[in-house]
Design a protein around this nucleic acid. Structure first.
Lengths: 220, 220
DNA sequence: CAGTGTTGGTATATTCTGTGTACCAACATG
DNA sequence: CATGTTGGTACACAGAATATACCAACACTG
């Protein structure tokens, strides 16, 4: 029984935010008190996380000023902060798993999805298009699109499975920027999928999602 | 951030063992000290779990004697001890999710599986055959068979996803005994799958596993 | 310039799980 | 009778996380 420590989780959260570009090199993180609220943890716990992050060189804390993001190589992150068995996990492993779960979810979601949820998807796609040049933003909405589809299937077991690996997915951005120059491709597929869903073409939506994953796999 | 309490996990573990018939009505559980070791928790924590189980009527503790399994209706189990969002989960939801994950795992496992792992599978199938009349035993080995295949794919992400829903699967036995009179069917498929794997017939193994799930779904 | 509010730094008390250890009385077995 | 088991109990302890202060350094503002 490994116990998941809150401050390690916070460390991972900050790292993935840095890696995805949400917190930029040279700039400072939000204040400790804001981060507490954002991560919903106490200040003591957060400071433990920040101390760890400074030790591993990800940030530099300047008294009375802030925590500044450093340039650092994340190749040798202490395994303590990594998701349990991250060793030996490749990007294609993540894609294989997501493909299996999301296709199954899509099969159900394409029949059950509501107009409200479709409107939500449309809004997300719009925001993706608007942030084509801002990678971190784009990735956030990309993730949210896939998440929404899985939730729409209303199968708690599939949703649990998806959630359990979502951290792998977020964290994989630390190691790779597989999305470089693939934003257009991704957006194209998302639009396609949305269109099929709106017109009730379930089969086509499923096929398009499958192609989307094939495309991702091919580009790495 | 819901924190998973150890004694709640122990409660669930005991319940699923009762439900699967491993601990039988009227008989007593193993001694507290043995259960501690079995679940790898301290006695204090275990006793908290037993106290909860007595409150909900699952067991009756007799001093200087043991904890005796009672006949009890598990329809209104306190949601605290249930896996996070068990409400509204049907057996078919579980099967859909397992099908998606296990088929993806099989696709890889059928190529990567070692002779040692195949020997392990053969041993498990043998034990299933030997315990055809003992349902709890049978279920244990059934689960172990599927688990072994998923592990054999060596994709940590898929394995994580599988583990995350394995408790749903174990726990579903509380609500249903969908395996009644289906043992032969299950054994048949397991033998078929094992045979295909041994002969390197990957495609057939995958198809057989798919049929296995279809069969399970049809029988509920 | 004085006042106010922010920043990170620090210390302390408290709560909650969970472990570990010890000892007890009741009972069974040899 | 001695030994070992059973559940019952109490207490000390460690670790994680929270909550609540207060500090010094700095920035901004009226």
């Amino acid at each position: 029984m490994d116990k998941e420590l809150l401050h390690n989780k916070a460390v991972r959260e900050v790292i993935s935010l840095i890696a995805s570009g949400q917190y930029k090199e040279g700039k400072s993180l939000p204040s400790e008190r804001k981060l507490c609220e954002q991560f919903d943890i106490s200040r003591g716990t957060l400071r433990k996380a920040l101390a760890d992050l400074e030790k591993m060189g990800a940030i530099k804390i300047r008294p009375q000023s802030g925590a500044y993001v450093q340039k650092f190589s994340h190749n040798k992150l202490p395994s303590k902060v990594l998701p349990v068995d991250f060793n030996g996990v490749s990007l294609s492993d993540i894609i294989v798993a997501r493909r299996a779960i999301e296709l199954a979810a899509m099969e159900i979601a394409s029949k059950r999805i509501t107009k409200k949820e479709l409107a939500g998807l449309e809004r997300i796609v719009g925001k993706m298009e608007a942030s084509l040049d801002k990678l971190p933003e784009f990735l956030k909405y990309d993730m949210r699109f896939h998440e929404s589809i899985v939730k729409a299937c209303r199968n708690s077991v599939l949703i649990t499975a998806f959630d359990s690996i979502s951290e792998y997915h977020k964290y994989s951005q630390v190691y790779s920027s597989y999305y470089d120059n693939c934003e257009q491709e991704a957006l194209k597929y998302h639009k396609k999928i949305l269109g099929f869903l709106q017109n009730g073409k379930a089969k086509s939506a499923i096929r398009a999602l499958g192609e989307h994953f094939d495309n991702m796999k091919a580009s790495i």
